[in-house]
Amino acid sequence: MTIDPIDPRRVPRFDHGSRVPGWDEAVDLTKDPAEVPDPATTPVPDDLRAAIEAHIAKYPERRSATVPALREVQERYGWCTPEGIEQAACVLRLTPAYLISVATFYDMLETRPVGRNTIYVCTNISCSLCGADELYTTVRDEVGDDPEFNVRSFECLGACDIAPMASVNGTYVGPISLDEVPTLVQQVRDGAEPLPDKQLARRRSVDPNAASRS
């Protein structure tokens, strides 16, 4: 049987819009299957092990400590690195696949390298009614492509009273006006407190009845 050789480039392929990493990924057949890491071959830093063990002690089942353990890994390595996940899996006696499954489920666990400084700008309904979308673009523009930053538009952060707001390295700040953005970003770069007078921690209750009492 003879078949005319056909230039594969002439064959139209699908042009897809996948933006989820992993959808288009095949496995690497040269790797070994990812089983529960054997403690004999997986070195775990002592402090990480201790921190995870401390979490495990709180629950009746080891598995419960998965999310706290992943947070520990993220804190230590900046994101949930494959090595970090393997280490946590070794302590938890779970497979790394299980941990990556959990890690990708939650928004705050990063499975790709990200900048050290996190700025979550809330862009949910209440905040966007107060101009959060503009805030988000402004922050993005201000930060530019600084690799030290991880700027994300985030779903409701539970601080609609200070809309538009952002969570800067875990500190809630708001309402942020657009002209405060450069200051805010600079403060984060300098490692200073972000907009101290706009932090949620200092905010008093707005309930007139409650305020009248104290």
């Binding site: 992993g22 990924e25 095949a26 496995v27 690497d28 057949l29 790797k31 070994d32 299957p33 990812a34 494959p82 996940i85 497979t95 790394p96 696949a97 941990l99 990556i100």
Partner: peptide, 9 residues
């Protein structure tokens, strides 16, 4: 999927 591109063996 599997973990980090490991095959499911």
């Amino acid at each position: 999927a599997t973990f980090d591109g490991h095959p499911y063996v």
